[in-house]
Simulated scan of single mutants.
Amino acid sequence: MLAKANRITRGADYKATVRRGARATDTNTVTYIRPNPDSQVVRFGFIVGKTVGTANRRNLVRRRMKAIAHELLPQMTPGMDVVIRALPGCAQAEWATLHEEITRSISRITSRGNSRR
């Protein structure tokens, strides 16, 4: 599980990351990353809408994404906000597929720059 310091908790932070962050779209997820000069840690947020499925399915997807974020945490540069949005196909995605997709999206964004100018 992610520590409280590593979670985005305010709606304004979600909104800023989604609106002003760099985006990478994949089959099952959309990943947004934005530098956050006010923070010295990497913070993650997750958006799993009702289009993903029932409450049980949405919670499963959210738990998987949190576990993947926990694994990726040590590899990331501090001072970043990451929001991962689950698309409807995420409900049927295997763990390995989801892990590879999120890892690839994050590396794609960080390799081309941290945010849009």
Results as ranks from 00 to 15, higher is better:
1 M>S: 10
2 L>R: 03
5 A>F: 04
7 R>Y: 09
7 R>N: 11
8 I>M: 00
9 T>M: 07
9 T>A: 13
10 R>F: 13
10 R>P: 07
10 R>D: 13
11 G>N: 11
14 Y>L: 13
16 A>G: 10
19 R>S: 15
19 R>H: 14
20 R>Q: 14
21 G>C: 09
22 A>Y: 11
23 R>G: 08
24 A>H: 08
24 A>M: 07
24 A>I: 03
25 T>Y: 06
27 T>Y: 05
28 N>W: 09
29 T>E: 03
30 V>Q: 07
30 V>C: 08
31 T>V: 15
31 T>R: 01
35 P>D: 09
35 P>A: 09
36 N>C: 02
36 N>A: 01
37 P>V: 10
37 P>R: 13
38 D>F: 07
38 D>S: 08
38 D>Y: 10
38 D>R: 13
41 V>W: 01
44 F>G: 06
45 G>I: 00
46 F>M: 02
46 F>C: 02
47 I>W: 01
47 I>V: 15
50 K>S: 06
55 A>G: 03
55 A>N: 03
58 R>T: 00
58 R>I: 02
59 N>P: 07
60 L>D: 09
60 L>V: 07
61 V>E: 14
63 R>W: 02
64 R>M: 03
65 M>H: 01
67 A>S: 15
67 A>C: 06
67 A>H: 12
67 A>R: 11
68 I>N: 01
70 H>V: 03
71 E>C: 09
72 L>I: 10
74 P>T: 08
75 Q>R: 12
76 M>S: 04
76 M>E: 09
77 T>F: 08
79 G>Y: 02
79 G>T: 04
80 M>A: 11
80 M>Q: 13
80 M>T: 12
83 V>W: 00
83 V>H: 01
84 I>Q: 01
84 I>E: 01
85 R>I: 05
88 P>V: 10
90 C>S: 15
91 A>C: 06
91 A>T: 02
91 A>M: 04
92 Q>M: 12
94 E>V: 07
94 E>R: 15
96 A>P: 05
98 L>V: 10
99 H>R: 15
100 E>T: 14
101 E>Y: 05
102 I>S: 02
102 I>M: 01
103 T>I: 08
104 R>F: 02
105 S>N: 15
106 I>A: 06
108 R>Q: 03
108 R>P: 02
109 I>Q: 05
109 I>W: 08
113 G>W: 06
113 G>L: 11
114 N>F: 14
115 S>M: 10
115 S>T: 13
115 S>V: 11
115 S>G: 13
116 R>C: 11
117 R>P: 15
